[in-house]
Amino acid sequence: MLDQALSFIVARGRPISIAAWCLCALLAGCGQPNRANQPLPPLDVMAFQPLFQENCAGCHGTTGQMGPAPPLNDALFLRVVTDQELNEVIKNGRPGTLMPGFGFNPGLTLSAKQVDVLVKGIRAEWPSSPREFSGTLPPYATDAKGDATRGAQAFALACARCHGAKGEGTDTAGAINDGAFLKLVSDQFLRRIVITGRPDLGMPDYRQQITEPEARALTDQEITDIVALLASWRTSDSFAQEPAPGATKP
């Protein structure tokens, strides 16, 4: 046994080859740690992808699409929203909704610089070509008050085909007259979804919602009215009174 072991070790040139392999391993230095692999303190992470994947992907999807929350990787959305609005929403969230603020308590959340990185990164990652959307686009946000009665007409024209005459849902699309749903989303959310649709889930944007024979884009006024109609469906305890634990002050 011992003889075998010894003769195995000292067999022709073995010591040299063992030593050579060890030396190679050392010289190759493959074990040398690389500073790039060292983890960064949370507030020093300044690359878009890690920030997005860790903070946004959970709801908005790994590629900014196909998440339960509205997609950020959406050309039309990125055309109508401003950097300032993005910045504000990432930093303070949308009080009263499920969008939390990510930048109000550095150390626990992100720093102002990191929020900037996210905004710039969203723009750079999913550029939105101006040529794709010609003409005047409906503004992302509006102060105008809609009219629910007119909204009902626009709804019948644009939404009822998939969501049902009263928003009760069809085989094509789910209900949107649901109390829980309406209580948990803001008017701004509704406006945004009417404008951009959910292309990743098959919902068309405001230009394709009205089909033949009329086949035209919704107007800004119609969008505002549809939102007013949906808002009127919220039950008595309106969404503004929903407690939102931990949400930032408006």
Partner: peptide, 29 residues
């Protein structure tokens, strides 16, 4: 980090109604 960094599987998102989508956001949030 899972709540903000681990996405809802896309196959689950695909077929959700608006209420269920919001529910999925509640699940993460």
């Amino acid at each position: 980090e899972a709540w903000s960094g681990t996405p809802i599987p896309e196959r689950m998102v695909e077929s959700l109604s608006p209420t269920q989508l919001v529910g999925a956001v509640v699940f993460q949030n």
